[in-house]
């Protein structure tokens, strides 16, 4: 299952809810888009949460959103970058998609 999070983890509990349900439910992938990409920054509280979730879930971030926000040099190691085409591939590879709005 592909989970999509588009909210900053610093003002919203969406990422925490997604990880609570998705990780315990086991496996799948997390794609961070829009303001959700801030969760992929290293040395941040959210980044630490994402890093510890990586054992349970594959983490991707949408590169155009990362770059737009100027965080490309601070991305957490292990987060895979995808463009919109890669986003499409992730949707195809997983049997279903949940956008955590």
């Amino acid at each position: 299952m592909l989970h999509i999070v588009n909210k900053s983890p610093f003002e919203n509990t969406t990422l925490a809810s997604c990880l609570r349900v998705a990780c315990k439910g086991g496996g799948g992938a997390l794609l961070l888009i829009e303001d959700g990409v801030y969760a992929a920054t290293k040395n941040s509280i959210a980044g630490n949460v994402v890093r510890s979730a990586m054992g349970d879930i594959q983490v991707y971030a949408l590169w155009p959103d990362v770059e737009a926000r100027g965080i490309q040099d601070r991305v957490l190691e292990g987060v895979k970058m995808v463009d919109y085409g890669g986003f499409v591939d992730l949707v195809v590879e997983h049997s279903n998609v949940q956008s955590w709005l």
Binding site: M1, R20, V21, A22, C23, K24, G25, G26, G28, S95, N96, V97, Q98, S99, W100, L101
Partner: peptide, 19 residues
Amino acid sequence: LSSAAMGDLMKTQDVVIGF
């Protein structure tokens, strides 16, 4: 449901629409 059971249930769906 527990969070884990909720996650398991989600995985079995064909279409998930969130509001």
